[in-house]
Structure formats: C-alpha cells, structure tokens
Design a protein around this nucleic acid. Structure first.
Length: 342
DNA sequence: GATACGTGGCG
DNA sequence: TCGCCAAGTAT
C-alpha cells in the first residue's frame, strides 16, 4: 500500500543521511558487542554524550567485558561512576553484569529477555536488541519522541502522546539495518531535529514534515510545564585529624546518592536550622556556602570544620589526595573543594 | 500516572 | 543568570 511505501522511503532517506552524517562515538567503533552497547546505553540514560564519553572509555579500559565487570566490587564500580549521576544505574549495572555472567556471560538477544535485567527498561531493551542484534524494534527515547512528534505533527502533549509515538516509530523501522536506523533516529534528533531551533534545512525528512509545514517545529513536542523545586538547607562537617586526612563515611544503600561516599552532615530541611554540633569540639565555620541542584530540590550547605584525632560518626579518615579515588558524588566534591580552599 | 533519582552544559 | 534538558528506570 502507498502508506507502506512512504514509510519505507523515509527509512531509506534516513539511512542514507546516516551513512554520511553518523557521529563518530567511542561505542560505535568496530562492531556491536552487546556488552559495549549495553554499557553505553546505561550511561546515556538522561545523560549527554559529552558527559558519557570519558566515563565510557574508562569503564571499557578497566572492565573490557561482562566477566571483568561482574568480578569487580560494587564499591569499585560506584567509585568509577562517581560524578556521572543517577547512581542507581551504577548499582544496577553491577547487578546486571553479575546476573549475565551467572547465566553464562551472554546477554539476552530479544527485548523480552533484556527487560528482565536490572536497570534495563523498555527503551534500553529495544536499543540493545536493535543495535547489538539488528532486531527490528523501535528504541523510543527523547530524541525519537521529538522527531516523530514533529514529522507527524502530533499536538497532543507528552506523556499522553507516548503510545501513539511508539506506534508510529515502530511503523518506520525497516527490516534491514534496524540498528543503524535506531542510531540514525537518535543522531537526527541530537544534531538536526534539536529541541530548540532545529536545522530543518539539512533534515532528510523536511519535505514531508508536518511540524515544519505548520511552523511548529520549535513548538513540538508539547510538554507539561515544570514545577518549581524547593531549596533545602543543612550543615556539613569537615572533620580533619590534623594530619591531612578528612572524615568520610558511606551513605545508606537506599535513596539519594545511595551507597556513595559523603562527608557527614545534618539533615537537609526546607527550614533553615542553626548549627548544632554533632559532637563537642572547637568548630569553625568555613566562609561561603556550597550550592548544588538535584533533580527535585536545590541544596545549600554550610561547611563547619574541626580537628578530631580519631574517627567519629561511623566514619573513617582518608588522605586529602586520596579523596579523588573515593566514590564522592559531585556535591561532596564541591564540599571538599570548598573546605580545602579556606 | 506521579515521583524520586544527578549532573554539567548551553542559549 | 537560570530554566531546560540528555539515548530512562524503578516504584
């Protein structure tokens, strides 16, 4: 039917564009090892290509296959992941490597099997199946949502439009080169059909794009307005032993920054609270504050410094120079930098 | 469906 | 400066 022919032509146009314009990325060089596809896809969840590149190279160099990663400790993986954010990914990454290795070391080939793995949801399962195994499934991420919304001129807001987007995206997937098609859709969204001021002049689909015809290319997809986020306040304790060591401890295994290393702190509340010492000592306030923004709240931390010869608060001392190897999230690196600058 | 969950970069 | 956002998942 004519409709099928048009979709077939769209896929061909996009693949032709991809052959000329594919981005050169570390996880695209030589082949499509499922381990590398999986690792890159987990890292890329809600994270920019620029932020991922160095982490990906570091991980592949240190753990070149699923066995190596499975045999690493969770602490090592969290330490290597530190700074990349969404740390549940790192915990699930390690759990997933262990599961795959326990099952013989091969990743499932199909979406259904991949979906059983920790940290692998609908998008990631489809992406791995398509890219690693050329299975003709649509991997619908934010890029694809944008491209499809615009090409078909979908004016229903996200996330209501997701089911329709999935249908349409799947209808475009070619039987051949499904992996290239998945990556081509994402490259198109990332480099041409961008969120703001898309480069329709270079788009292989511009001729039939409904959004472009209606002048809606910078408007679609429609998304709900963002809620404002609150600010929380707290005090963080920079405890040194007078010998170039600072006291750290591990955060609980659940919740924000789970399992990561931290400098002890008070509770973080929306109501500013005065400083109350966690133990009797000679405390000095470090001038200025540490500010950090999480997904759902801003944080403002006041840093208090003291000397203490032996470990307290369930923590242990780490040499200043060795803090870099700790699984310190970005917030806590800011705290260390702030405290050491004074 | 709504919410928790990080971070750095960009217009 | 600051809102927006980048290859989502788990609950």
């Amino acid at each position: 039917m004519a409709e099928q022919g048009r979709k077939h032509e769209l896929a061909a146009l996009l693949l032709r564009w991809y052959d000329l314009n594919a981005r050169v990325l570390p996880w695209r060089v030589n082949g499509q090892d499922p381990y590398k596809v999986w690792l890159s896809e987990i890292m890329l969840q809600q994270t920019s290509v620029a932020a991922v590149k160095d982490y990906y190279i570091k991980f592949i160099s240190r753990w070149p296959n699923v066995q190596a990663l499975a045999e690493a400790s969770l602490d090592q993986v969290l330490g290597a992941w530190a700074g990349l954010g969404y740390y549940a990914r790192a915990r699930n990454l390690h759990a997933c490597a262990c599961a795959v290795w326990a099952q013989g070391g091969a990743f499932p080939r199909h979406v259904s099997g991949l979906l059983e793995l920790p940290g692998v949801g609908q998008y990631t399962a489809a992406a791995i199946a398509a890219i690693a195994n050329d299975i003709p499934v649509a991997a619908v991420d934010g890029n694809v949502e944008r491209v499809v919304s615009r090409y078909f001129g979908l004016t229903e807001p996200l996330p209501l439009s997701k089911p329709r987007i999935r249908e349409l995206a799947q209808s475009l997937v070619p039987q051949l080169r499904a992996g290239d098609f998945a990556q081509a859709m994402m490259d198109l969204g990332a480099t041409v059909c961008t969120p703001k001021s898309p480069a329709c002049g270079t788009c292989p689909w511009a001729e039939d794009c409904v959004a472009k015809a209606k002048g809606l290319q910078s408007v679609l997809p429609i998304k709900g307005s963002k809620k404002s986020i609150p600010t929380r306040y707290g005090h963080v304790y920079w405890i040194t032993n007078g010998n170039g060591h600072a006291l750290v401890r591990q955060r609980p295994m659940k919740g924000l920054l789970a399992g990561m290393t931290e400098f002890p702190s008070s509770e973080w509340n929306e109501m500013k609270a005065g400083f109350s010492a966690p133990f009797v000592a000679d405390w000095t306030q470090v001038s200025g504050v540490v500010e950090h923004t999480f997904t759902h709240f801003h944080l403002e931390l006041t840093v208090w410094s003291t000397h203490q010869p032996s470990p307290v608060l369930d923590g242990h001392f780490v040499k200043f120079e060795d803090l870099r190897e700790e699984a310190l999230p970005s917030l806590m690196r800011k705290v260390a930098t702030h405290a050491l600058k004074d």
